[in-house]
């Protein structure tokens, strides 16, 4: 277990969400998509040219930009 943020994970890594440091609009959206403290999250792939990330949380695949992913603190498992 090591603390890092979601944007720093590599494809294939799984981690647990520790905390979300997002402004309210983003926070609400993340909550609705299933991002909650303690949830398992898996990095599926990262788009080339510093593009967005694809992560899997529960039964949902979500894409988000690296800048937003950096606001999500995770503990790598």
């Amino acid at each position: 277990m090591s603390a890092t943020n979601l944007a720093a994970l590599h494809p294939g890594d799984t981690a647990t969400i520790v905390s979300i440091h997002a402004e309210e609009a983003l926070h609400l959206r993340l909550l609705a998509l299933g991002f909650r403290t303690g949830k398992q999250i898996e990095m599926i792939r990262k788009a080339s040219f510093s593009g967005p990330l694809q992560v899997r949380i529960g039964t949902t695949d979500v894409m988000l930009r690296r800048i937003e992913a950096a606001k999500i603190e995770v503990a790598k498992s």
Partner: peptide
């Protein structure tokens, strides 16, 4: 102003 967080549906 909307966060770019989208679902990738199957």
């Amino acid at each position: 102003t909307e966060p770019f967080v989208l679902e990738l549906p199957p």
